[in-house]
Design a protein around this nucleic acid. Structure first.
Lengths: 182, 182
DNA sequence: ACAATATACGGAGACACTCTCCGTTTGGCA
DNA sequence: TGCCAAACGGAGAGTGTCTCCGTATATTGT
């Protein structure tokens, strides 16, 4: 790739990160191009769709997901605390910008979504938590990681739309945890 | 109101009902006007925003919500069955068109939303179910109707985005029910 | 029945966003 | 240095939202 192309690509990613954080997933892409100081054509050549751009933004996010799971799993103690700690972490990870929870949760099962592989990272991290809890025989039968993702993703989506704060989210997560633990 | 205005208003509501069912909540409003056989100006005069139009569409829906709650509450028996029956009914009621679950769930707590009062009907119906379960001492402490609405609304939103079928939704609702019952 | 008037209508058009096309510019290699 | 593939940029087509205002019509009073 030519040097100028490389530079513009990075500028675009940086600008998109800013704009999406400020204005949510629906922000204007022309605004992203303008903020990066390039033409609209350049943006669309590098990133043919909004989703492809999202995918690029989310590279660093993948590492963050894995680190977060590591951090939660070192906590020894009550399975309920472990599960709730993961749920809260999970909500935080998918709520980095407006519209994120719905986007990520629906992409997780959509083979055609360009960000699907990134979202699978989240599913895999959740699976690690499930494995740990199963070792301790703390989970009910038939509870799967994908169900956790959907339930917690659903709570995050509602919280995102209704601007709920952490205090309002907590009891919802507790219901889910209690419904999953023996 | 003038007779022609009344007639156009009704035509618009009918057209909107059709178009929203076919194309989801994001359908073009000009398309609604065209289908109703009126100009765009007429649509926007009657319904200044998409939400106000939704509100009008939802009039008949309110009756349906109350009927559904009546129907669920006559079932005698296991509290878990009652709760799950309501959850499934609830999901059905808010999933009548694409985007409905997210829209309705977020409107329920938003004083500025024109459809808020309609959504309160759902909250009230859910409260009736909660009251019944509390009479039977079947619910855990501190479980509120609004939390049910958020959790079940979250599941419906995820199902809506990911095109989940009823079989996939059921276990999610079971987790929520189990987390709420004693 | 017939103005007079308030009310409502329609659709052109301003504005915003997405995405493409193609003439122009530029980085990198021989 | 000179060439040209690669990359750029932005005008503009397509689509949707919403407003404005000249035109049309329902209603009311006589």
């Amino acid at each position: 790739m030519r040097a100028d192309a490389q530079r513009n690509r990075e500028r675009l990613i940086e600008a998109a990160r800013e704009v999406f954080r400020e204005q949510g997933y629906d922000a204007s892409l022309d605004e992203v191009a303008k903020r990066a100081g390039v033409g609209a054509g350049t943006l669309y050549r590098h990133f043919p769709s909004r989703d492809v751009l999202m995918d690029a933004i989310m590279q660093s996010w993948v590492d963050r997901v894995n680190d977060s799971a590591d951090k939660v799993l070192v906590h020894e103690g009550d399975p309920r605390d472990l599960l709730l700690a993961w749920f809260e972490t999970y909500v935080g990870l998918i709520s980095l910008h407006k519209g994120g929870p719905a986007k990520i949760t629906s992409a997780m099962g959509d083979k055609n979504s360009p960000i699907m592989t990134k979202c699978q990272t989240l599913a895999a991290a959740t699976q690690r938590v499930v494995d740990r809890l199963e070792e301790e025989h703390a989970l009910r039968e038939q509870i799967e990681a994908v169900q956790m993702c959907r339930l917690v993703g659903g709570v995050a989506a509602v919280a995102d739309n209704s601007n709920l704060d952490q205090a309002a989210i907590r009891p919802l997560l507790e219901v889910i945890a209690d419904g999953m633990l023996v």
